[in-house]
Simulated assay, not measured.
Amino acid sequence: MGQTISLSLPEAYLPDLRTAEVSYPVALSAIEEYTRLVDIEGDESLKAYNALKYKLEQLVGKDLTNTNFYEWWEEEGIEVLSFRISLPDPTKTKSSIDAPAIREIVRFLTSCKPEEFSSQHPFANKFLPFLDDWFHKFLALNAKSYDRRWFFRQKDSNGNWFEHSPDALVMLLTGHVT
């Protein structure tokens, strides 16, 4: 069916947005239903919480133990939570990902312009800014080396702040330490 994101990557290196789109309305509805129930009856025993967790785990086939269904309004909101739950986790690829693919992922993760990665697909466009976690998990599984901290400001041994350039990130991720 082709890619849903304008990234120059093989299909195996892209998130499965089609599956997420199918699961998303079910996840969203289940969380909304749980929220209404808690607002009316409460859930001190966590029986409804555990039932929601089980239902969603069965729907998406992944462990949701560390997912917070309780206070989504304090985090990214119910729609983003439902999307993150619905999006299948990345898998380990059969062969190593090459530097051009890593460069494209780094470009996506470090870009301040999400419009560069638009899609013909409205569902994909709506959630493009929230694919960062998926790509970080993908790199953790498939890059020769990976540390999420490389993508943030750091202090060098002299106490000076710096950020890795995209080229430096590619070198680190491909195992060519700079």
Rank of each mutant, 00 (worst) to 15 (best):
V26T: 15
S23Y: 07
H136E: 11
N142M: 05
M171A: 14
A12F: 05
Y34S: 10
L9C: 11
I5R: 03
A12H: 07
F162Q: 09
T65G: 13
W134C: 02
I5V: 11
L9S: 04
R107C: 07
T35F: 01
A168M: 13
K92Y: 04
L173Y: 00
L7F: 00
D132C: 07
F138C: 08
E104K: 02
F117L: 10
N50T: 10
S111R: 07
L64C: 08
L64R: 01
E41T: 12
R149G: 09
L139Q: 01
S145M: 11
L172R: 02
R18Q: 15
L141C: 11
L9I: 07
T93C: 12
H176F: 05
G175I: 02
A99G: 05
A101T: 06
S8D: 12
N142S: 10
Q58T: 11
S86D: 11
A99K: 03
R148Y: 06
L81A: 02
A20E: 03
F83Y: 03
I85G: 02
P10I: 03
F138W: 05
E74H: 09
R153L: 12
D16V: 08
A48V: 10
T110W: 04
D133W: 02
S29I: 04
H121Q: 09
A124R: 01
Q58Y: 03
L87R: 03
P15I: 03
H176M: 11
W72Y: 12
P10W: 00
A99Y: 02
E74I: 09
E41N: 14
P122W: 00
L128G: 04
W161M: 15
A101L: 06
D167L: 06
V38T: 08
E76Y: 06
R103Q: 13
A140M: 14
E79Y: 03
A27I: 00
E116T: 07
K144D: 15
L7P: 01
Y34M: 10
P129M: 06
S29Y: 06
L9R: 03
L17P: 00
E116F: 03
S145E: 14
L17H: 01
Y54R: 14
R18P: 04
I105S: 02
